[in-house]
């Protein structure tokens, strides 16, 4: 069984931290993974994406085939839609509400959310606000990861251990903040959607 996750966002939003957390957790969990990312020129406010594939056996393609993603986890609503062709019909769209406005032709926000809401499985959350309540808006990415964690085939223990490993160098306070953000996202999702339906 392979679980395919697309991470979407803008350079600097913390996509690669989510990816690294998933990688480390997969290793801790004795699973296989492939995680490809688009780097390079995107460091300056461009679109950033990562394909994460987690499985209990060997994985061939580094890229998720179109139509095969179980989830798109977006740090930004329009970026979430950019990868829609990858999503399975019943796949989940999980996205932050907050647009990242660094272009002139940003589309009408209502239309973006209409498309997201037209999908049977979606969760839109104000991760920035939740992160702020927990203590720092920069942990919004961990809020999203927490919300998505219900659909990730990794033990929560492994995810938490991975967060501790990745933030180790930044000290206990930052670890605690990120763990709180993860937990808050997880709870929010529990209260707002029923993942068992998917």
């Amino acid at each position: 069984m392979t679980t395919n996750i697309i991470l979407a966002g803008v350079g600097g939003q913390g996509i690669l931290t989510i990816a690294a957390t998933l990688d480390t957790a997969a290793l801790n969990n004795g699973m296989f993974f492939k995680q490809s990312e688009v780097h390079g020129m995107s460091q300056r406010g461009g679109a950033v994406q990562s394909h994460v594939r987690i499985a209990d056996g060997a994985i061939y393609s580094d890229l998720i085939p179109k139509g095969q993603a179980d989830m798109i986890l977006g740090m930004e609503p329009m970026e979430t839609l950019r990868y829609l062709p990858y999503l399975k019909k019943e796949g989940w769209l999980i996205t932050d509400t907050k647009p990242y406005l660094n272009i002139d032709n940003y589309p009408n926000e209502k239309k973006i959310f209409d498309i997201i809401e037209s999908r049977s499985n979606h969760l839109i959350l104000d991760a920035t606000k939740i992160a702020k309540q927990v203590g720092n808006i920069r942990a919004a990415n961990l809020v999203l990861l927490g919300a998505a964690s219900h659909l990730i085939p990794l033990k929560e223990r492994a995810l938490i251990a991975a967060i501790k490993t990745l933030f180790k160098a930044k000290g206990d306070r930052i670890i605690a903040l990120n763990l709180d953000a993860f937990e808050a996202g997880k709870q929010y999702a529990l209260e707002h959607v029923d993942f068992s339906l998917s």
Binding site: M41, S42, G46, M78, L81, R82, P85, Y106, P107
Partner: peptide, 11 residues
Amino acid sequence: APKLVAGRPPK
């Protein structure tokens, strides 16, 4: 992708 998605080139 849906038509409304705009490009976000590097800056």
